[in-house]
Design a protein around this nucleic acid. Structure first.
Length: 826
DNA sequence: GCGCGCCACTTTTTT
DNA sequence: AGTGGCGCGC
């Protein structure tokens, strides 16, 4: 049954929540007349009208278009708190989904700060975390062992490689990476092998491998990330009582970062929300989706912004609220963001505004080289810190691709400026940690062949590829796991393989009854891992990490409580867990599945071992990348990684055609628009000060490249900018107000967006004058290696001069004229 | 079975 | 440039 919906400016349509008690007295004060809610509702203090409207929306589906820095997380958490506080929802009736563990934790932390409730038992988590919870609770229906393990991307790839070897797949024609991508893509689309349209031989082969991969995973009792989603979607879809139960239970579904959902996640949400009857969606609860189409930067991994439009249509969304008031940045920064993003088509339409003044202009710097760019950043950062403008941790350097961080890192390092790099390998992804986890997984599940192969010969114990090949053949022909294949073949007892299996067996027995810390300590020692790294010369870090693994396990046990869900438990001021009686959680004692927290079988109440729970935690939460948190350090990260963060001061480096926008995404309009959204995200990270920089030359893949400044500069409002590049001799840089700068900025662009025919004569005669090269655009030239070609463009001057030349046989290349041997063809 | 050296690769990333 | 994977030689 659908509730009637109305919208009266967001002002408390209490009649829609029939008979719900309002413990904090919402019912007696605030009304449609807009009575100040501050006095009545401390929760709602300092919310602007749009935020207030969103927080207090009546039942029914809603889409909140929340611009960057508009208080999105605040609205989400306050909404939940408001629902609970007014008795419009019970903790058990709320489902809140995010994409990252960080966002989920943030929500839980804020929520427990607002309300004195136990957030355990609330379904707040990542898509994958909640799917895990569902599958553990209903593992029999889902066809999985309760202690199924989760493959991360690395594990998945090695599982696929193993499969390819086994079935003699030509890895040239079907690269395992691509297969992994294909399989993940299929799952994101909700397709099992039989659902994939295969019109050509290649696709048929891939589908066949997909099928084999599925069988392998099933046999080994492991699931990949995509499988978590797909399997739980199917669980809901195919089991009416289960689906009905959750639909009845979750009166309020809230989705964060909705623009990042893929097709499957949206379908999953629909299953949770209601059933489609006669092509029409019938829902019981309310779905509140919060998102920003302008911040959709994950199309490359299956995110579908179109889900926002589909949601409005299919859920017949009645309430759409735009949060456009920005509390983060000064208007020069905001105007820049707005101007840039206005160049995108097909937007839902949204313009950020602020009551803050213009603030400082956006500073733009042109460097001669990536090295100089990095050095300039460091100088600027040092000055900011020296002047006491802001602490280092409030300064972020953002870049488009990870490769760019190296130069900046070394510049910071040489200047002894503390910095922290985000990204790269995370804790649970480090090799030594994965090795340790593989041993632990074998204790839980000896049939996990991926883990078996990972450590069967690590540390080296004389088991080579040949031996394993034979073993794998034996396992395949008898359809069993590698572990069982060892035991099945008689006469293996005395071999290295037999010894390995025995080792795992002994470990399993030895660790019986031990606590998690003891188990891991024992495994690290008896496996020989510690011994191995003690002898390795670079092993000290690894030993430290392994030690850290024990600590992580320790804090997992004390913080999370084993056998429970991997959701942070709120503690009172004495460090005790806050608890709440089942009755007040609104759980129906007659329905067993209601009471199932994470990692517990909904029917039997059976729960995972502490070890298995920890392994799940390790897979779902890869951990932080860097240990030295909390230090006052400059923050380095990709633009993608910066989403959701904010800093007083932001540097965006490498603003060059081919880098940002990245050349691989410039072929189609969608790609370019995503790059623009990425830039939009980057700009809106800054609160007070924003620097953009580009460099004329850059080392990339060991080669010097000549780059033109990014087209995105042309899409920023001139009046908000300040070009701060100093006048320099001999490098074709310009003072901001020179005529040359104008010409430079508005130079005609050729078919690749490179500027052509813009000839920069240096403001000051060069000290070391290189001989004039005499080249002109359009001239035919001869190169000793590439043969005859045609000059397309010329840039720089003197020693720094270079030309873009098209060679019929070798394509288009940029050549440094001081190096390349070019002769003009008469 | 192990280790060295060569070759190919290189957008963004969470779970 | 730097890394990871693979193949060859010991």
């Amino acid at each position: 049954m659908r509730q009637p919906r109305s919208y009266n400016g967001g002002m408390l349509p209490h009649d829609l929540f029939s008979g719900a008690p309002a413990p904090f007295g919402t019912g007696n004060g605030a009304g449609a007349t807009g009575v100040s809610s501050q006095a009545v509702q401390p929760l709602l203090q300092n919310l602007n009208p749009e935020q207030l409207a969103a927080v207090t929306l009546p039942a029914g589906h809603a889409l909140i278009l929340a611009g960057a820095g508009s208080g999105k997380t605040r609205v989400l958490t306050t909404r939940i708190a408001w629902l609970l506080q007014n008795g419009l929802a019970t903790p058990g009736g709320i489902l809140a989904v995010t994409f990252t563990n960080k966002a989920a934790k943030e929500m839980l932390t804020r929520l427990s700060a607002m309300l004195p409730i136990n957030v355990r038992g609330m379904w707040i988590g990542t898509f994958h975390g909640l799917c895990n919870r569902l599958l553990r609770a209903h593992h029999k229906l889902a066809g999985l062992p309760q202690a199924f393990q989760i493959l991360d991307t690395q594990d998945q790839l090695s599982a696929i490689k193993r499969l390819c070897k086994q079935f003699n797949v030509d890895e040239e024609r079907f690269p395992p990476k691509q297969l992994a991508y294909f399989i993940a893509g299929c799952k994101e689309e909700g397709m099992r092998p039989r659902d994939v349209p295969a019109h050509d031989a290649d696709t048929r082969k891939k589908v066949e491998l997909y099928q084999l991969y599925e069988e392998q995973c099933q046999r080994e009792g492991v699931v990949d990330f995509g499988e978590l989603m797909l399997r739980s979607f199917e669980l809901l879809r195919d089991n009416d009582p289960v689906r009905a139960h959750y639909q009845r239970r979750f009166a309020h579904i809230l989705v964060d970062e909705f623009q990042d959902t893929n097709k499957l996640q949206y379908a999953w949400l629909k299953q949770m929300a209601g059933d489609v009857v006669d092509g029409c969606l019938h829902t019981q609860g309310s779905v509140l989706a919060v998102g920003d189409d302008d911040q959709s930067i994950y199309a490359f991994r299956g995110a579908r912004v179109g889900n926002m439009q589909d949601f409005v249509r299919e859920f017949d969304v009645q309430h759409q609220i735009k949060l456009e008031q920005n509390y983060r940045s000064y208007s020069n920064i905001l105007d820049s963001a707005n101007a840039l993003i206005s160049h995108n088509s097909r937007r839902l339409g949204k313009n950020l505004r602020t009551t803050q003044g213009p603030g400082e202009p956006v500073r733009i710097y042109e460097a001669n080289s990536d090295l100089a760019e990095a050095q300039w950043m460091v100088d600027e950062i040092k000055q900011l810190v020296r002047d006491g403008e802001m602490p280092r941790k409030e300064i972020a350097v953002l870049y488009r691709s990870n490769a760019q961080s190296r130069v900046i890192e070394s510049a910071l390092f040489n200047a002894s400026v503390p910095y922290r790099v985000y990204g790269g390998l995370r804790f649970f992804e480090r090799a030594e940690i994965k090795h340790a986890l593989a041993y632990l997984r074998l204790l839980e599940n000896p049939h996990d062949d991926t883990s078996f192969l990972r450590v069967v010969n690590f540390p080296p114990r004389g088991i080579g590829a040949r031996t394993l090949e034979v073993l794998q053949d034996a396992a395949r022909s008898s359809g069993c796991s590698l572990h069982d294949a060892v035991s099945a073949v008689p006469g293996k007892a005395g071999t290295n393989l037999g010894a390995f299996v025995a080792l795992v067996q002994v470990l399993r027995e030895q660790t019986q009854g031990q606590n998690l810390r003891g188990i891991i300590g024992q495994v690290l020692e008896s496996s020989g891992l510690l011994e191995h790294y003690r002898h390795e010369k670079e092993g000290a870090d690894r030993l430290e990490n392994l030690d850290e693994l024990i600590n992580a396990a320790e804090s997992f046990v004390t913080q999370e409580g084993f056998g429970r869900d991997a959701v942070a438990l709120p503690l009172d001021e004495h460090g005790n867990a806050l608890t709440q009686s089942p009755a007040s959680q609104g759980l129906d004692p007659d329905a067993p599945m209601l009471n199932a927290p994470g990692n517990v079988d909904a029917d039997t109440g059976e729960t995972l071992s502490p070890l298995a729970a920890f392994l799940t935690h390790a897979a779902l939460e890869a951990g932080d990348n860097q240990a030295q948190a909390g230090q006052d350090a400059v923050q380095l990260m990709t633009v993608h990684a910066s989403k959701g963060l904010e800093f007083d001061c932001v540097f965006i480096g490498g603003m060059e055609e081919g880098l940002f926008p990245h050349e691989n995404s410039m072929s189609d309009r969608d790609g370019l628009e995503e790059e623009r959204r990425l830039m939009y995200v980057a700009i809106t990270r800054a609160r007070k000060r924003l620097y953009l920089s580009h460099s004329q030359t850059r080392m990339l893949h060991g080669q010097t490249r000549y780059n033109v400044k990014s087209r995105f500069f042309d899409e920023l409002p001139e009046e908000a900018l300040k070009w701060i590049t100093p006048r320099q001799a001999g490098f074709g840089s310009f003072a901001p107000d020179s005529g040359a700068a104008r010409a430079y900025q508005s130079g005609a662009r050729g078919q690749f967006g490179f500027k052509t025919e813009v000839f920069a004569s240096p403001p000051v005669p060069p000290v070391k004058a290189a001989p004039g090269h005499g080249l002109r655009v359009g001239l035919a030239v001869f190169h000793t290696k590439f043969g005859e070609g045609k000059v397309l463009a010329i840039e720089g001057a003197d020693a720094d001069a270079r030309a873009q030349v098209h060679f019929p046989r070798h394509g288009t290349k940029w050549l440094a004229l001081s190096v390349a041997k070019l002769t003009i063809v008469e």
